[in-house]
Write a protein that binds this DNA or RNA. Structure first.
Length: 829
DNA sequence: GCAAGGTC
């Protein structure tokens, strides 16, 4: 028997294929998701922002392919499945990305597959345009080969995006962050999709800014007949920009007492039924009608998909296949409390074919698969709105009625039949007052004639829905990545989302785009991507060589990059207007160890300390705030220590601003505070305040927080664990000695005479917080203590990681300071 | 700390 491995990109597809083929073949279906196995990355020192000129990323820096998500160990999984197989059929999505994934899969599995018999071909590619029986079988009967050229074009795109994005992002970020203190963005990113996306928003902003209002005039009349209440008439010329002309018309009508009906006409107008939903359309409607952002929409869509409520939510197709079971789909909704009546009427009266949409050959339009109740989906607004919305959309496509409007002379009135808007109220046209019936020659009495002076108003900020449309039109991003790009420009603080999901660019966003306009407008034009894509297409078609195209495009961007760097002053001029120089930002805080002057604390993202005398900036941990720490100094560099507090659990520890970026000892890394410092004698170090191994994580140590009294506590220096103990004690100290049983440092506790919880009015005790029975009820660790290694394994741990957090001078703990001490000495002599 | 692209 020969074994065939079939690989699909998602479980739903794998399942369908397995089901269809099982009618003839013996199929075994394994459920796992295959996404990208590998991604392209920069290696080694090229990841270091400080050691590498970003220009090198466009030339020298090597790239490497690496498993994208090592935790999934996708490569290993594929190899296990492929072992002993004779053939492979690749059912990946039928686009260039899919072709690329084909080769990722092949790279992983070919080494472990059986050797081919003679010259026999073992690798096959299935090309399908929909997931129906006929299509799947057609694909099986015409198996081809994976397309290497298309895969290569994707490789080239990945490499270009990475190199160009990283080079520009690093340069911009470092240049402006080093100069300005209130940019309020920790990253000033650039990318061939996100930058044009921002460009659209700023373009609209510019239109609003440069808008000059113009005065125009309208005539409004009110007439009535008999005892009826007056009706308003609109002018058939709508508006006029010439004062003299409008005045002439007013003069003509002012004296009139009577208005005659000149003609009556009746027109039927229908609002077209919406198309079936593809991803982009869903994002648009969710944003404009439900006020939900694309990222949020996709999250919920994915949940609804995995729970079986809707079909696969990533598709470009808006067309239902001929044999699609519309009635069956609708029948599913017949008992839904919200629209059972509508659905039943439709089923009874028969349904129209949905509007003809575009067939992209991927997945059918997003369709409800079963009826949902609000309680099933949870009470959150998103859930019930969303499910409802999807199902309603379905109804529309099936609901054939049209709206009717009547136009009567120059009054416009609507008499609506709700049609599909019965289930989609937000699509409805507001009903206006009813018009009395009238015929040609009828006379109305003129109630009043008014001349109104008005001004044209500027356009509004771009709505998210409009932005999505623009991105789709210009080929910026894909259905799956559009939400990511929009999210990016929000997170980088380039735009903010205003009421009605309008995107308003921030000062930073505006300055960036105007800077690109000045230096190299191509960097922000939507064509930046399509131009590159044209080149890549040549690779895909086999008309150009991969290396040549890559080199050619990189050369262009290398020139652009150097020109950008040389011309950055042009963008800087704009920055100066909106932002303050770093030296003028922030409040004086702690003292610099080099010049002993006060450094300034810049709270704007990324928060940091800046010494304007030395012109040095020292980074700080993010997502927290720093306070002064009693003017205490680091013994190594004389920088004043600061107390850092994280927002959430109130974990607090001191850190030295210099050591934080320049680790003083070999066993330390960048970004460590005193609670991880291995200084042998400093009273703030891990060695002095560490108590014992963390009760939750593998590598952390619980470190005493001497500033936490009277709610004394210790906190893990790696994870979020905070342990409270000895509340209201007068004094708590970490002792020199360690516990014999678990090697944790002993703790000395002093209580007030009146409040001591110790037996016999004792006020002092020294013991192990994990093992001492006297301390048992004083350490709020009951559940946690049980997890301490002492109790977990029924004894002290043997062998690994001994004595962390112990005092120096103990067995084998000498940590030699690096040369930094010597280097520092030079400063202070 | 950086891109965009898949997928959950």
């Amino acid at each position: 028997m020969r074994t065939v491995l079939m690989v699909a990109e998602k479980p739903s597809l794998a399942q369908s294929i397995a089901k269809i083929l099982s009618k003839v073949l013996n199929t075994l279906y394994t459920h796992t998701r295959i996404s990208l196995c590998v991604c392209v990355i920069l290696t080694g020192k090229y990841n270091n922002w400080d050691k590498v000129d970003p220009a090198e990323l466009l030339s020298k820096a090597p790239t490497e392919k690496k498993e994208a998500n090592p935790k999934l160990s996708m490569v290993k999984f594929l190899q296990v499945e492929a072992k002993g197989c004779d053939y492979v059929v690749l059912w990946l999505d039928c686009d260039k990305e899919g072709e690329n994934i084909c080769f990722e899969v092949l790279d992983a599995i070919q080494p472990v597959m059986n050797k081919p018999y003679g010259n026999e071909r073992t690798v096959y590619r299935a090309k399908f345009s929909s997931i129906t029986d006929t299509d799947i079988w057609n694909a099986m009967n015409q198996l081809g080969e994976p397309n290497k050229n298309e895969a290569l074009s994707v490789d080239a795109r990945q490499e270009l995006d990475l190199r160009i994005g990283c080079a520009f992002t690093r340069f911009q970020t470092k240049y402006f962050q080093g100069k300005y203190g209130n940019l309020d963005s920790s990253l000033i990113s650039f990318g061939p999709c996100q930058t044009p996306t921002l460009g659209f928003c700023v373009e609209r902003h510019d239109k609003i800014q440069s808008f000059k209002p113009e005065t125009y005039w309208v005539i409004q009349a009110k007439v009535f007949k008999g005892k009826d209440s007056p009706i308003s008439l609109d002018w058939d010329r709508v508006r006029v920009f010439d004062r003299e002309i409008v005045q002439m018309f007013v003069n003509m009508t002012k004296t009139a007492r009577e208005a005659l009906v000149e003609s009556v006409s009746k027109k039927e107008k229908a609002k077209q039924r919406p198309l079936a939903l593809n991803t982009v359309e869903m994002l648009r409607v969710a944003s404009s009608a439900l006020g939900m952002g694309p990222q949020h929409t996709m999250q919920i869509a994915e949940r609804l998909y995995t729970q079986g409520y809707i079909s696969y939510p990533r598709t470009e197709t808006t067309h239902y296949p001929e044999n699609f079971d519309l009635k069956g789909t609708l029948r599913q909704q017949a008992n839904n409390s919200h629209w059972a009546e509508t659905v039943k009427t439709l089923l009874a009266e028969g349904i129209n074919r949905p509007r003809k949409g575009a067939d992209a050959g991927d997945h059918p339009p997003i369709t409800p698969m079963r009826s949902a109740t609000e309680s099933e989906l949870g009470k959150t607004r998103g859930y019930c709105f969303y499910s409802r919305f999807l199902i309603l959309i379905e109804c529309i496509q099936l609901y054939g009625m049209t709206d009717t409007c009547f136009c009567i002379f120059y009054v416009f009135k609507c008499g609506l039949s709700p049609g599909f808007t019965e289930v989609m109220p937000w699509q409805g046209i507001p009903l206006e007052e009813a018009l009395p019936t009238c015929e040609k020659g009828d006379a109305f009495t003129v109630d009043e004639v008014k001349l109104l002076e008005k001004q044209t108003s500027p356009p509004d900020y771009l709505t998210e829905a409009e932005l999505i449309t623009l991105m789709e039109k210009h080929g910026i991003g894909t259905d799956a990545s559009i939400p990511v790009h929009i999210n990016n420009i929000c997170q980088r603080n380039y735009v903010t989302v205003e009421n009605g999901r309008k995107l308003k660019p921030t000062n930073l966003g505006i300055v960036l785009v105007h800077g690109y306009y000045k230096i190299d407008v191509e960097l922000v034009l939507p064509t930046i991507r399509s131009a590159v894509e044209k080149q890549l297409n040549l690779i895909a078609l086999g008309k150009a060589n991969f290396h040549q195209v890559l080199q050619h495009t990189l050369d262009i961007f290398k020139r652009k990059f150097h020109y950008f760097v040389d011309s950055i002053a042009g963008m800087d001029e704009l920055m100066e207007v909106s932002f303050s120089p770093i030296a003028a930002t922030g409040k004086p805080h702690s003292r610099c160890g080099k010049c002993h002057r006060f450094m300034k604390y810049i709270q704007a993202k990324p928060s940091r300390l800046h010494c304007s005398h030395c012109d040095e900036t020292y980074s700080l941990p993010q997502n927290g705030a720093i306070k002064l720490y009693k003017e205490l100094k680091c013994p190594l560099d004389e920088f004043e220590l600061v107390l850092w507090t994280s927002g959430s659990r109130g974990k607090t520890y001191p850190l030295c601003p210099y050591c934080f970026s320049n680790p003083p000892f070999r066993d330390m890394k960048k970004g460590m505070g005193c609670n991880e410092c291995t200084h042998p004698t400093c009273p703030h170090s891990l060695n002095s305040l560490g108590i014992g191994q963390c009760v939750e994580c593998e590598t952390g140590v619980l470190v005493f927080d001497p500033n936490s009294g009277p709610k004394w506590r210790m906190a893990c220096n790696k994870c979020n664990v905070v342990v409270h103990f000895f509340e209201h004690a007068y004094k708590v100290q970490v002792a020199q000695d360690s516990c014999e049983a678990c090697e944790a440092s002993l703790v000395m506790v002093d209580f007030h005479k009146a409040r001591t919880p110790l037996a016999d009015g004792e006020t002092q005790h020294t013991g192990c917080v994990f093992c001492d029975t006297l301390f048992q009820d004083l350490v709020e660790l009951k559940h946690a203590t049980m997890r301490h290694p002492m109790h977990r394994g029924g004894g002290a741990r043997r062998g690994r990681g001994r004595g962390r957090g112990r005092r120096p001078g103990g067995r084998g703990n000498p940590k030699k300071p690096k040369d930094k001490m010597a280097a520092l000495a030079a400063y202070f002599v």
